[in-house]
């Protein structure tokens, strides 16, 4: 059991700009037409089923933060107040150079502090001369003390060396004398033995000559 008016009725019912009069007519039809009423009920049920959607949790993502930070950082570099700080090291270096060139000195006293440029040259020269004189005096006295101490040391050293050398020389001479005396005694013994041998040899020669003469005389006699 269908109704030819169903599409029109339902389409109009779902519209959001339905006039009160049109709504009244549709309601009247729905009360009379079972098919349209059941169709509408199912459509509304389907619609409410869709509306039961529960919000799903969003997976993790960076929310475009990287892009945002990158683009805003790049865009702000030229106009940012922070860029003034880039000149700070250069300015500090320049200030230090000026302080050095103008020989600036800051003195803190009871009455506050004072800044002065340059330095009093005469005072500085006098101070330097006095300092030099003081240093010279001190160096001279140091040298004198050093020389005196060195002389004493040298003398003591020389005396010790000399005494040791003298004693050693005496001992050496005694040993040499004993050595020579021993050698002389041995030489005398050797010479004595040599003369004795020579004398013995001469005696043998004389005997041989005597025997030779006796032999010759004997041969001549025959």
């Amino acid at each position: 059991m269908s109704c030819p008016k169903t599409p029109h009725i339902l389409q109009e019912y779902l519209a959001d700009d339905l006039t009160p009069l049109a709504k009244e007519e549709i309601d009247k039809h729905l009360l009379q037409c079972e098919h349209c009423a059941s169709e509408l009920e199912v459509l509304m049920l389907t619609q409410s089923q869709l509306a039961n959607w529960q919000a799903e949790r969003v997976p993790h993502w960076d929310r475009g933060m990287e892009l945002f930070r990158r683009e805003h950082r790049v865009g702000k570099q030229s106009s940012s107040w922070f860029s003034a700080w880039q000149w700070m090291p250069t300015a500090a270096s320049f200030a230090m150079l000026c302080l050095l060139i103008f020989n600036t000195s800051v003195e803190v006293g009871d009455g506050g502090f004072s800044v002065s440029f340059g330095s009093p040259v005469s005072d500085m020269d006098a101070a330097l001369a006095a300092f030099e004189q003081e240093q010279r005096t001190e160096i001279d006295s140091m040298i004198a003390r050093f020389e005196s101490r060195q002389d004493t040391n040298n003398l003591q050293l020389m005396q010790a060396v000399m005494s040791q050398t003298q004693q050693a020389t005496v001992e050496n001479l005694d040993q040499i004398y004993a050595y020579f005396e021993e050698q002389r005694r041995q030489d005398m013994q050797l010479m004595s033995q040599g003369y004795q041998q020579l004398a013995d040899s001469d005696y043998a020669t004389v005997q041989s000559l005597q025997e030779l003469a006796q032999f010759v005389s004997f041969q001549g006699a025959r």
């Binding site: 799903e56 949790r57 929310r63 475009g64 933060m65 945002f68 805003h72 865009g75």
Partner: peptide, 19 residues
């Protein structure tokens, strides 16, 4: 240039847009 504001704005609407 407030990254915090941007993130908060995204957080407000990301669920609706994702669903």
């Amino acid at each position: 240039g407030s990254a915090f504001a941007w993130e908060k704005l995204v957080k407000r609407y990301e669920s609706k847009i994702y669903n």
